[in-house]
Design a protein around this nucleic acid. Structure first.
Length: 633
DNA sequence: GTTAGGG
DNA sequence: CCCTAAC
């Protein structure tokens, strides 16, 4: 396996190792560190640095060339995307912005642990579909972009046999979810993945992906829904570069999954309206019964991030969003795990894949009169400042931080599927991380210190440009204020990497409660000061909408046995549906009754045949009366 | 462990 | 979908 350390493009050189403040020692280890005991931290950091650097460069590029797109041309026609992989050497012929991009690798074989299969950064940049007429299939690609599942497939197909740590994507996502996907191509073990839209390759075989929207909207129901749509209609969604600038980033939704376990945001819609709408809708932390994300489902369907998603830890800590391991991702829609999973048990190498890493939330404030360029710079600086301070990686298993770097993964309990599902990572700002000293006077960019505050601010933000636009600091230097700004925050507790793993979160200590993740294996880790109730049990199940077939079965069963006998209903019609508990059925019935009671226009989700709804009402009425009679007697 | 109902 | 109270 090889780690690409340097990518030079004409005059632009992506010198990953030279990332700002990250410890050199660790950077240097990028190519050689092993997922071993001692170096895992470093290697991960390096990966991040590496990616961050690239992202940063791309950002700069975007600023300097407003009309240009991030072209990432692969001149080498030997690249095999379908089932093969582009070898490192071949990457040397990659071009960016028409400039030859030379990649320098340090050949490092065997158990190299670091695999950076893609780089993805978010920022306010042009999204320029380059190719207008293409289809994924034609490219011989199996959707390297878009979903984790797909990415997984690719890895498998390419016979990625070596165990290792895969940083599949690295996204530098600012809270507004402005996303720029830089070329995703730093796959160390040979395959090249290109970012959607922003990637341009000369080889026809690459065209498949270049047109995907890089603006991803992950939905609870439709993973990366918009993403898909966009990509599936490349030709239609094609737009000339000139319009990209008008894009707006839409509001995102903060999600407080599992009782405030996480805060999630994502694009609600980043499709083809040519606008990016800044998003920033942060939900105030509400633990306990404060907020029920599930109930919000209908309203904020576009939010996603949950599954693979990340949680944004704005308290200055960086949290890894979308940490997942491939085995777990193999779960299909219906919840059936593919057979691949078994491969990772026993002695097989444990494979991890971090879909993306997200930086903590940033509040960007720029005057309305500010230029887009300024906004870009602001974002860039914020991100740079954050990363510049160095990052530390934390590993959490079962919600507990694993401190002993010398234990093997298996010793740590990371050897089976179940446990992998409880794995999480955290990105923590290094001790020295506190970036730019800010002049409290004009902090343009800052780490939100209060979710409520943020929420309010976003509401107050301009409708058009939903980015917080308060006092106009004009072109003042953008400063970033992280970490310490939250010292007095009551609600948020920075995730201190120093928190001893041994220190069991005391009942009222504001221990972090990693949340996770859904069966996709992705873990959402967030520091919080919530009552550490669900600490280790806080895994919210994946939402699985009932299919019409299931509804029918449910209706059928209820008609027969009536309401109030959910266990019987379960055994009767959902005996083999392990993911449907009788409580689920009861809940579903509840919603069905409600759905049937409202007008069709108000219904959401997959439409349930009126006929079924009628039966629901009939059965509901019948059994209600039945119960009345019983009570009467 | 189930059921019912609020969140 | 989660959580609890109540049985």
């Amino acid at each position: 396996m090889v780690v690409k350390r340097k990518l030079s493009c004409g005059s632009n050189v992506f010198d990953f190792p030279s990332i700002p403040k990250a410890p050199r020692s660790s950077r240097r280890k990028v190519s050689s560190s092993k997922l071993g005991d001692d170096d895992d931290d470093n290697s991960q950091i390096c990966a991040i640095d590496l990616l961050a650097s690239l992202a940063g460069k791309l950002l700069e590029e975007s600023e300097s060339s407003s009309t240009s797109t991030y072209a990432f041309e692969g001149k080498n026609h030997d690249v095999h995307l379908g089932g093969g992989a582009v070898k490192q050497e071949e990457l040397e012929h990659v071009y960016i912005n028409n400039k030859p991009c030379k990649s320098e690798f340090s050949d490092h074989e065997a158990n190299a642990d670091l695999q950076v299969s893609s780089v993805e950064s978010d920022c306010v940049l042009e999204q320029t579909p380059v190719f207008s007429d293409c289809k994924k299939e034609e490219c011989g690609l199996k959707s390297l972009v878009g979903t984790e599942e797909e990415t997984c497939v690719v890895n498998e197909e390419q016979g990625e046999a070596t165990g290792g740590f895969v940083a599949d994507r690295f996204s530098l996502k600012d809270p507004s979810q402005l996303r720029l996907q830089s070329p995703e191509s730093v796959h160390l073990d040979g395959d090249v993945k290109l970012a959607p839209c922003t990637v341009r390759v000369s080889d026809d075989s690459f065209q498949g992906y270049v047109n995907h929207s890089k603006l991803v909207c992950r939905d609870d129901d439709n993973n990366y829904c918009k993403y898909y749509k966009f990509s599936d209609n490349c030709n239609k969604s094609y737009r000339p570069p000139s319009r990209v600038g008008n894009r707006r980033i839409k509001k995102s939704v903060m999600k407080n999954y599992g009782r405030g376990v996480s805060m999630l945001k994502c694009f609600e819609d980043t499709r083809t309206d040519g606008h990016l709408k800044a998003l920033y809708r942060k939900r105030k932390f509400s633990y306990g019964y404060g907020y029920n994300p599930w109930k919000r489902e209908p309203v904020h369907r576009k939010r996603r991030l949950s599954d693979k998603g990340l949680v944004v830890n704005y308290d200055g800590g960086l949290s890894s969003e979308s940490v997942s391991n491939s085995p777990l991702k193999r779960e299909s829609e219906d919840g059936v795990l593919s057979s691949e999973i078994g491969l990772h048990l026993k002695d097989s190498p444990v494979k991890f894949s971090i879909k993306s890493l997200r930086i903590p939330e940033l509040v960007i404030e720029v005057p309305e009169t500010a230029t887009v360029g300024l906004l870009k710079r602001t974002v860039k600086e914020a991100v740079t400042a954050l990363l510049g301070g160095g990052i530390r990686i934390g590993v959490l298993v079962q919600g507990k931080k694993v401190r002993d770097d010398n234990n093997t993964l298996s010793q740590t309990g990371l050897s089976c599927r179940e446990n992998l599902g409880n794995l999480g990572f955290t990105l923590e700002p290094g001790p020295e991380t506190l970036p730019v000293p800010l002049s409290s006077e004009t902090p343009v960019v800052s780490m939100p210190t209060d979710s409520t505050n943020l929420s309010e601010r976003s509401v107050a933000a301009s409708p058009a440009l939903d980015i917080v636009i308060p006092l106009p600091p004009q072109d003042a230097d953008l400063l970033i204020n992280s970490g310490k700004s939250v010292e007095n925050n009551h609600e948020l507790v920075p995730y201190q990497s120093d928190i001893s793993a041994d220190e069991q979160p005391s009942p009222d200590s504001r221990a972090l409660v990693p949340v996770s993740a859904l069966e996709s294996g992705a873990l959402a880790i967030v520091p919080l000061n919530e009552k550490p109730k669900r600490t280790e049990l806080s895994q919210r199940r994946t939402r699985r909408p009932f299919s019409v077939t299931e509804v029918e079965a449910l209706v059928q069963a209820v008609e027969e046995v009536g309401t109030g006998r959910w266990r019987d209903v379960k055994m009767r019609s959902f005996e083999n549906a392990s993911h449907r508990t009788y409580v689920d059925l009861k809940d579903k019935w509840k919603t069905l009754v409600h759905t049937a009671s409202i007008s069709p226009q108000q219904r959401r989700g997959e439409p349930v045949p009126q006929e079924l709804l009628d039966r629901v009402l009939a059965a509901h009425r019948h059994w209600s009366e039945h119960q009345m009679k019983q009570n009467g007697k």
